[in-house]
Design a protein around this nucleic acid. Structure first.
Length: 354
DNA sequence: AAGCCGGGGAG
DNA sequence: CTCCCAGGCTT
């Protein structure tokens, strides 16, 4: 490239970039790696408090590798995409067992670690080791799609390949660490999704979308499809000591590995909950108290959650075996809970009359 | 190539 | 409400 894209970006970054994010301090491969995983599909402002707490609890990759996965999930609770946490824990053991606790300094080897793909590997190589590597996250996709007027949704293979080519082309040999931060900062602060501040952009003079006054057309938007609606009963089962029953979710699938409330099929009417609890959970309960339901939206479907509280008078065996366990409220809140379940257990719930 | 996998910020 | 965020894995 002869348009000095990187030089202009770096000059802007020196003046206006974000130089004080938590993972910029005490920079090492471990901290960079954790931040990159947390930042996948997650905004910076959301990540910051999670990153701080996580580093307090797991200061090194060995601390992480030696920790119970439940401990890792509890620190991920509310952040979403929990496979990231499971993969992070697994990768930590890989780093310790296969690489003696030292992160590999090249992208190809980093990609053998669970949860690290092409862009994350490049980010670690550049940020932690200062070696040349091209990244392509959501910010960079938007900047490059506009700058080169690349049509189409970046989820399409051809569009993605074209963007990777531009990403490689613009990545400089010098100051790669600053450059990767600079192009992400530009995307986050100037070349924003809506109403970009092209007046403040250091590369607007060579931006094709800006020249055509068509920044709003790039990048192409994702084709949307309707999300199915699902419904479930969520049971707040309390024993005589004030403990609540939680169920560990299967290791894969939605909320994989997290502790959640026992559920019942929505085909059951409210008047059948007592029987169902006894038959399916082995719990003799009092009358259910219905709590106002709410809708929770996932990336690919909506879930209507209908909570019901039942006092348990006698256990007849089944529960407290395998995946079911009783917790005192403060214990429960220290577990890896899905965000809506945490809210449900925390907020003073409004009760609806049956 | 398309689906799966969360939760929240911002408009 | 919609859109998308420092994506990767599975099918």
């Amino acid at each position: 490239m002869t348009d000095r894209f990187a030089d202009k970006l770096l000059a802007w970054y020196d003046q206006h970039g974000r130089h004080n994010l938590p993972w910029h301090h005490d920079r090492n491969a471990y901290r960079v790696w954790v931040s990159e995983i947390m930042l996948q599909q997650t905004q910076v402002t959301t990540v910051i408090p999670y990153f701080e707490a996580f580093m307090e609890r797991f200061p090194t990759v060995r601390d992480l590798a030696e920790a119970p996965v439940d401990d890792v999930l509890s620190h991920w609770s509310g952040l979403g995409y929990y496979a990231r946490a499971r993969n992070l824990h697994k990768a930590a053991t890989q780093v310790v067992d296969e690489f003696g606790g030292e992160f590999p300094a090249n992208a190809e080897t980093l990609e053998t670690l669970t949860g690290i793909g092409r862009s994350t590997a490049a980010a670690i190589v550049a940020q932690a080791f200062g070696k040349r590597a091209a990244i392509l996250d959501g910010n960079v996709k938007r900047v490059l799609a506009r700058h080169h007027a690349v049509p189409g949704w970046p989820g399409r293979t051809g569009v993605l390949r074209q963007l990777w080519e531009y990403a490689e082309e613009h990545t400089p040999d010098e100051r790669v660490r600053d450059y990767t931060q600079a192009i992400m900062d530009l995307g986050a602060m100037v070349c924003t999704r809506s109403k970009p501040e092209c007046n403040a952009c250091p590369v607007s003079d060579t931006c094709q979308a800006f020249a055509r006054n068509e920044t709003h057309l790039y990048p192409g938007s994702k084709p949307k499809k309707a999300k199915p609606e699902k419904t479930t009963w969520m049971l707040i089962l309390e024993d005589t000591e004030g403990r609540v029953l939680l169920e560990r979710r299967p290791p894969s699938g939605i909320w994989g590995g997290l502790w959640s409330l026992p559920e019942l099929d929505p085909a059951h009417g409210a008047d059948e909950l007592q029987q169902a609890c006894e038959r399916e959970l082995g719990l003799e309960c009092h009358e259910p108290e219905l709590i106002s339901g709410f809708r929770h939206t996932f990336s690919h479907y909506h879930l209507h959650i209908q909570p019901a509280r039942l006092s348990v008078q006698r256990q007849k065996g089944v529960a407290e075996s395998g995946r079911f366990q009783w917790f005192y409220p403060d214990q429960a809140l220290n577990m890896g809970l899905p965000a809506p379940i945490r809210t449900l257990l925390t907020e003073p719930e409004q009760t609806a009359l049956l």
